Simulated scan of single mutants.
Amino acid sequence: MQTENRFFDDFAKILNGAAGTLAGVGREAEASARARAREWIGGLDFVSRDEFEAMKAMAAAARDEADALRARLDALEAKLADGAV
């Protein structure tokens, strides 16, 4: 009876060790895949979220300034047209 218990104990230890090893291999493979993906994406012309948001804000400010200048120009053209008539 004791040999059966010892056999199962040893078998359980082997399975636990194998499961731990497989989990470690899985984590290492995932880390390696992430590192390769970062390297691949880093070589492309992508921008970070922060850079994108900064450029988006700058574009909105430029649009607002252009709209203000357009309104000013329209007002000046209207004055010029009224004075010339």
Rank of each mutant, 00 (worst) to 15 (best):
S48N: 08
R34E: 04
E53G: 00
F7H: 13
R6I: 01
D9V: 11
I14W: 14
K56W: 06
D50N: 06
D82M: 01
M58C: 09
E28H: 09
E28K: 11
D82N: 00
A19V: 10
A35C: 05
V25W: 09
K56M: 09
D82E: 15
R63L: 02
D82Q: 02
M1Y: 10
E28M: 11
A37C: 10
R38E: 07
A71R: 07
D10G: 08
A60L: 10
E51F: 05
A84D: 11
K79Q: 09
R36D: 07
L44T: 07
E65I: 08
A12D: 15
K13P: 03
L76C: 06
L44Q: 13
G43S: 10
K79D: 00
A78I: 07
M55E: 08
A75D: 06
E53R: 03
L15A: 05
E28I: 02
A19H: 02
D50V: 15
E39A: 15
R34T: 13
M1T: 14
T3Y: 01
A81G: 06
E30F: 12
G83C: 01
A66I: 09
A29T: 12
A54S: 03
D82C: 03
A29H: 12
I41S: 05
A57H: 02
F11Y: 11
M55T: 04
A33I: 15
A29P: 00
R38W: 11
A61N: 11
